[in-house]
Design a protein around this nucleic acid. Structure first.
Lengths: 215, 215
DNA sequence: CTAACGTTTGTCCATCCGGTCAAAATTTGC
DNA sequence: GCAAATTTTGACCGGATGGACAAACGTTAG
């Protein structure tokens, strides 16, 4: 039995409706993430989804509806790694795996990352409530967990919220600024193995910083 | 009589031309950084610059010309902090001030940061050559400097290029993702002092990482 | 004063784009 | 097999937008 995501009380969706909507959302992710909301046109999305514009508009009445649906679906996937950050287990290990999971997401879902980045960059006009609600709550929650670790002396004392920001920033950078990263690394080893190199680097950075280790 | 194909070789510019062009570029920075290239309209820029659209088009023949000029002017300012990274002086101190300077730029020139972010996010269609040329050269150069420090045992060994990326990512995050940062910190102390807090946090992170310090 | 040059404006155009609509084609429930 | 419901399509619309243009306005040098 299907339970509809949010839309206002239409009767339960047809198989075709579910399939086509998914097709459209996939196409829209491709187009929105590459050009931003304003830069993307319905025609582009329709073509990428292999259907005509009026046909697409039969499934989503307005361009903004597509974007909104996409955003809502994505937020869950996107925040999953942070949700998993758990109080049990060794703090340093927990944080290390959080960083790795985030980096894997940047590698495997760069379009999703760019979609969010695009939205935030332009002032998050369409997802402000989500940021101030769901996201803030989650971060508050996890910041408390991290704070507990600090108080217990398990990790160094710093600002837990800025720690989370820095993990987001460093990992998502490899998705959002991919072209720049590749341009700078140039062809050759760096370009091919950039995610492995990034993983190793970030682990070093977050665990021990730059100060030379006395051995 | 005019024969110039595109930019170069116009006779020297009038005082009015210089003033108006600057005015337009300032307005364009505001508008482009807030809406992206495609999202910005010539009318918006013209209004922000306090002139009519045809008047603006008298100084810049095409929308893209404004963007291009803006980009070229900005790159210098933007990379200045990295250029200053110097071989002389204590490596850790050098890196610390680089981080601080970058963070100050994110605080004082958020529009510039967002303009670049927008461009890179969309695949850098208009500045690819700059990335592969000027930027890559500069990074190669500074990576060599950092590498020297590592070989000399002055800082821990890691990947110098990814180190640079991580500094860019963490500092620019406070400009590019400002709305998200503010939404998550919420009103109150965090919001007001976010840049000071960020500075302190980043210094801790880059110097010593998260491992609890034996005291 | 006036001719030459630089600047500004109103008007106009072609195209793009989000969205509508009615009719045609297809699928579904009985 | 057939009527009702769903899906698809082509044609169309109105507003926004990038840009062209010529006429008007202002400034400056002789």
């Amino acid at each position: 039995m299907s339970a509809d995501v949010q839309a206002p009380a239409p009767r339960r969706r047809t198989r075709i409706q579910r399939e086509k909507r998914d097709l459209i959302l996939e196409a829209a992710l491709e187009v929105f993430s590459a050009h931003g909301f304003r830069g993307a046109t319905i025609d582009q999305i329709a073509e990428a989804a292999g259907m005509s514009k009026p046909n697409l508009l039969y499934y989503f009445r307005r361009k903004e509806d597509i974007h909104e649906t996409l955003m809502q679906r994505l937020l869950d996937t996107w925040l999953a790694p942070l949700r998993e950050l758990d109080d049990v287990g060794d703090p340093l290990t927990e944080l290390r795996s959080y960083i790795h999971r985030k980096l894997e997401m940047a590698r495997d879902f760069p379009r999703e990352s760019r979609l969010f980045a695009n939205e935030i960059l332009q002032g998050a006009p369409r997802i402000m409530p989500l940021l101030e609600g769901e996201l803030k709550t989650l971060v508050d929650d996890k910041a408390a967990v991290i704070d507990g670790w600090m108080r217990a002396g398990k990790i160094a004392r710093t600002d837990p919220r800025h720690l989370i920001f820095s993990i987001w920033a460093t990992t998502q950078h490899y998705a959002d600024f991919d072209v720049q990263v590749r341009a700078v690394l140039g062809p050759g080893r760096g370009d091919e193995h950039r995610f492995e190199d990034a993983a190793r680097f970030l682990e070093n950075l977050f665990m021990d910083g730059l100060r030379p280790r006395a051995r």
